[in-house]
Structures are given as C-alpha cells and as structure tokens.
Amino acid sequence: MAKEVNLTEELKRNFGFDTFKGNQEAIIRNLLAGKDTFVLMPTGGGKSLCYQLPSLILDGTAIVISPLIALMKNQVDAMRNFSAEDGVAHFINSSLNKTAIDQVKTDILSGKTKLLYVAPESLTKEENIDFLKQVNVSFYAVDEAHCISEWGHDFRPEYRRIRPIINEIGVRPVIALTATATPKVQHDIQKNLGMLEATVFKSSFNRPNLYYEVRPKTANIDKDIIKYIKSQEGKSGIIYCLSRKKVEELAELLQVNGIRALPYHAGMDSATRTQNQDAFLLEKIDVIVATIAFGMGIDKPDVRYVIHYDIPKSLEGYYQETGRAGRDGGEGQCITFYINKDLQKLEKFMQGKPIAEQEIGKQLLLETAAYAESSLCRRKI
C-alpha cells in the first residue's frame, strides 16, 4: 500500500510544505513499509513530521508516547490547525478530567483520530491499556526516547515499561525519536524497546550558525549578563539557571534593570507558566529565565542567544538547551558562565543518590568540565 503514496503531495496537502528536510522522507517510507525505525535528529530538524505525516496516511490511530504535557498540547493544536476535523489529534494525560477523556475515546473509536499523544504514566494505567486494546493502532512513536536510558540526561523509569505495554495492546511498528543519544544511550533505547533490528537514521548535529563561548563566572556575573542583554536590544534570548530560586531572583533583577524578562520553572502553577511561555513566543517579552523544565518542544525559531548561568549537568542536556538558539538558520550565541565551584556544588547534590547513579552523574560532569576548560573549538567538541 505504502508504495502508491505520493509523499510530496501529501506533505503539501497536509502541512503546506513543498519539500522534505534532511532524511524525513526516507524515515517516513521506512515506517510506512511497516519497519521499526530509530531516528536521531537534532532539535529543530523536523522530528515530529516523521510520525505526524504517516499517521494521516495510514489506517487507524498512531500512538505517540511523549513525556511533555506542554509539547502535546502544542502539537495537537498545530495538527488541528491543518485539519478540518478537530478530532484528528488528541492527547491523554493527567490534565484531563473524565468527561474530556470520554470524548477522546469516542473520537478514537469512531475513527476520526489519527494521532493520539499519551503521557507514559497514562499509558501504564490499566483502564487506558484496556481501552487501547480495542483501538486499531497504526504504529507507536516514542518521542524523547532517551528518557528510557539511565545514561540519558532525562531518565524516566516509566519509559522502561513501554515495550511490555505495546506487547499487551498489540504489536505494531515502532518509531523511536531523540535529539540526543550517545552510542550507549542509543543501544539502550533499541534494546529496551525491543527494536535492535530497526533501521537507524542519523542526521548531522553540527549547526554552523551557532557560536559557542565559555566565560569565567565572577562576582560580576549579573552585571555581565545585563550588559550583554542590553547589547542585544530587541532580540529574544533564554537564560538557564539550575535552581528555581535563582530563576526568580534573576528575572526580577533583569526587570528592575529595564529588561523585559519573565521566569519559568516547574514550581510555578501551570497557568502562570503557560502565560509566561506565551508572552515569550508572542514577543511581549525578550528574555525568559528558566530551569531546564523550559523549552522541551518550544519552537521559537528566532531565539538569538542562550545563556547558561550555571554549568549544565551533562553535555547532552547542554546540546539540547543551546539547540534552541537560531532554529531559523540565523545566528545563535550560546554563552556559558563557568566556575569550577559550580561543579563541586553539583557533585554535592548527587550524594544522596544510589551509587550507580552517582557514577553516571560523575562521568557526565567530567565531560562538561572538559568542555568548559578546553582550548579547542567548542562546536567540534
């Protein structure tokens, strides 16, 4: 069946694009042919299209497992914009009440819904498993697949239950997608999802429009940052801090200095978070000060700088955070303030954790330190 489809026409009709990016088309053909597919593609490379388009072409409903509630909502809204039918895409997660979930189920069973986003913790619920057994599933997409691996920068134990649940609901092709995976993480993902035979697609991770710089972190860091932002008049930027407290303080300090900035972290109530995120996307503010909770699925193409107030816990996480700069192909400045003392602080944080986790954490920190202290071209590293 897959052979007959004119993918470029489908792309144009459903999403308004004339051409595919990178290896999107090859990935989609592989999935349409019913093969397991592993996709390693940098942030901004167009990962979501790799499962959105096939879901519209194939019979049944594709199930996308994603850990990010904000991202689900963004993507579902985007899919509905393209379609005349609101039921074309849905999500099930902890933010929905029973009535809303019943509506979703009705739409799915009536065959309207092509794409269903599910949070991993919702997928493991007995009643959802029982429901999904009645559904004609076209394929499963596991987004942010690095969450499966303890070596990934965002390990989530519930991700390790995905394969047994797929086996229970009904085996169909699986596409796993991630923007960051070392060989170790990749193997872990494939093994855990039972897809060692999958076709693997890797895209280049070099983004020549991004400029990387590490600056010494001194007592004047706040002044340095204010000065830098003022030199970037009217441009959008993100500043990452490790602690929520620092996020609040810095956002306030920037405001006092006449900079349009707002905070964003997981401790804020979700209405305020959404409001602040929208203010950034709609350019009512220039700077968002955030913990790493921000930015998963934030698709603002013209972020011109990403500043790290504190050294990140891993290079992988750092690559993802800085990858939010310059997605439109324009310049992106990635500046990190580094002092060795911050590393010691991070090591302290790890002390209460299981030994295995501490070992992994230490390895990752060593890589970050090597990056910060190196004299080589940082993009090469």
Rank of each mutant, 00 (worst) to 15 (best):
M1I: 10
A2Q: 08
E4Q: 09
T8F: 14
E10A: 12
E10M: 10
K12W: 02
F15A: 10
F17M: 01
N23Q: 12
A26N: 13
I27N: 07
N30G: 15
G34W: 00
D36H: 12
F38V: 08
V39M: 12
G44H: 03
K47N: 02
S48N: 04
S48Q: 04
L49Q: 03
L56N: 01
I57N: 04
L58K: 13
L68Q: 09
A70H: 09
V76M: 09
D77W: 00
A78L: 10
M79I: 15
R80D: 06
A84P: 09
E85G: 06
H90M: 13
H90I: 09
I92M: 11
L96K: 12
K98A: 14
K98Q: 14
L109H: 10
T113S: 03
K114Y: 02
A119L: 14
L123Q: 09
E127W: 15
F131S: 15
L132A: 06
L132K: 06
K133G: 01
K133P: 04
N136A: 09
H146K: 03
W151L: 11
H153F: 15
H153M: 14
D154R: 12
D154Y: 10
E158R: 02
R163A: 03
E168V: 09
G170L: 00
R172A: 06
P173S: 10
L177Q: 11
T180M: 08
A181I: 04
T182Q: 00
K184I: 14
H187N: 12
H187K: 13
D188Q: 05
I189T: 13
Q190V: 08
K191F: 07
K191D: 07
N192C: 01
L193I: 08
A198L: 02
A198V: 01
Y212N: 02
A219F: 13
K223D: 10
K227T: 15
G234E: 11
S236F: 07
I238L: 14
I239G: 06
L242V: 14
R244P: 05
K246V: 13
L250N: 03
L250I: 05
A251P: 00
L253F: 07
R260T: 03
R260A: 10
L262V: 11
P263L: 05
A266P: 05
T274N: 12
T274A: 13
N276C: 08
D278K: 12
F280T: 06
L282S: 14
L282R: 13
V287I: 15
V289I: 11
A290K: 11
Y305S: 01
Y305E: 00
V306G: 06
I307M: 06
I307E: 05
I307P: 05
I311F: 05
P312F: 03
Y318M: 00
Y318K: 00
Y319S: 09
Q320Y: 01
G329S: 07
E331N: 12
Q333R: 13
C334R: 01
T336D: 00
F337E: 03
N340L: 12
L343M: 14
E347H: 03
E347K: 13
K348R: 12
Q351L: 11
P354V: 05
P354Q: 07
I360Q: 03
G361D: 10
L364H: 09
L366C: 11
Y371V: 00
A372C: 13
S374W: 07
